[in-house]
Computed example of a mutant assay.
Amino acid sequence: MTNTPPSERTRARRMHEKAAYDRATIDAILDAMPVAHVGYVKDGAPVVIPTLQWRIGDQIYWHGSSASRTQRTARDAQVCVTVTLTDAMVLARSGLEHSVNFRAVMVFGAARAVTDPAEKAEVLRVMMEQMFPGRWDQLRPMTAQELKATAILSLPLSEASAKIGTGMPTDPPEDLATPVWAGLLPITLSMGAPIPDPNLHPDTQLPDHAKNYRFGAVSRP
C-alpha cells in the first residue's frame, strides 16, 4: 500500500477540509461499499453506469459481459469510478444548511482490460471470496466459454481521493434560537433474512457466508 499526493484531478477545490488522500481511508471506503458508478465519455456525451467493484491491493476491478458496449468503450479509456456511503441526513434550521454525512471515493485513470484467462479466473475467485468467504470452492467450476464471455476492467489506485462529511448541522449563530428541530437522521445498511431459492435441494443448508454477510465485513489485502 502506498500513499500518493493528490493530482490536479483528485485535489479537492471546495470544502478541502473534508478531503482525505491516504490509502487507509480510501481502501476502507472501497472495501465497505461494493456498489460503484463508472463514468466515461461515449460519442461526446457522458455515460455513468452502476456496477460492483472490488479491490485487490492497489487495483480496483469491475466486470460485465464481453458483448457490452460499456465494457468495450471504457477499455483503455479515461474513466472515473465513484463509491459512496451515506451515513446520515443532516437537518438544519434553514433549507440551504441541510446536508448529508457521507464517505466517498473517486478514482481516475485509464481502464485496463484483464485478458489473460488465468488472471481473469483468479480475479473473479478473489471477488467471490471477499464477498462470500468459502463459497468459491462450493460452486460449479466456470467453463472456458463463461470466462470468455466475461469482461473485466481494472484501475490503479494511483489517482484516488476520498471526501468525508460528518457532524451536526452548521447553522449560523443567529439561527440557533429558531424553534425548528435540527439534527441527524442516521442511515444504516442492514441485511434481511436470506430467502432460499424454491428449487433448492431439500438437504441444502444455509452457509455461514450467506447467513452472516455484511457490506465491508471481510478484511481485504
Rank of each mutant, 00 (worst) to 15 (best):
G165H: 03
G165Y: 03
T166H: 11
T166I: 06
T166L: 10
G167N: 07
G167I: 03
P169N: 10
P169E: 09
P169L: 14
P169W: 13
T170N: 13
T170F: 06
D171K: 05
D171V: 08
D171L: 08
P172E: 15
P172M: 10
P172L: 11
P173K: 09
E174V: 10
E174C: 02
D175T: 05
D175P: 00
L176K: 10
L176Q: 10
A177M: 02
A177C: 00
T178L: 12
T178N: 11
T178V: 12
T178M: 11
P179G: 00
P179Q: 02
W181C: 03
W181L: 09
G183M: 07
L184C: 12
L184Y: 12
L184M: 12
L184A: 07
L185Y: 08
L185W: 03
P186M: 04
I187D: 01
I187K: 03
T188W: 02
T188Q: 12
T188H: 11
S190A: 15
S190P: 02
M191F: 06
G192I: 04
A193N: 05
A193K: 08
A193H: 02
P194N: 04
P194F: 03
P194A: 03
P194H: 05
P194E: 02
P194W: 03
I195G: 02
I195F: 00
I195K: 11
P196Y: 09
P196Q: 11
D197K: 03
D197R: 09
D197C: 08
P198G: 07
N199C: 01
L200H: 10
H201C: 00
H201F: 02
D203G: 12
T204Y: 03
T204S: 06
L206T: 02
P207A: 04
P207Y: 05
D208I: 09
D208W: 05
D208L: 12
D208E: 14
D208S: 14
H209Y: 14
H209N: 09
H209D: 09
H209P: 01
H209M: 10
H209A: 08
K211M: 12
N212T: 15
N212F: 13
Y213M: 05
Y213K: 04
R214S: 12
R214I: 03
R214A: 15
F215V: 01
F215L: 15
F215T: 03
F215S: 04
G216D: 06
G216C: 05
A217Q: 12
A217C: 09
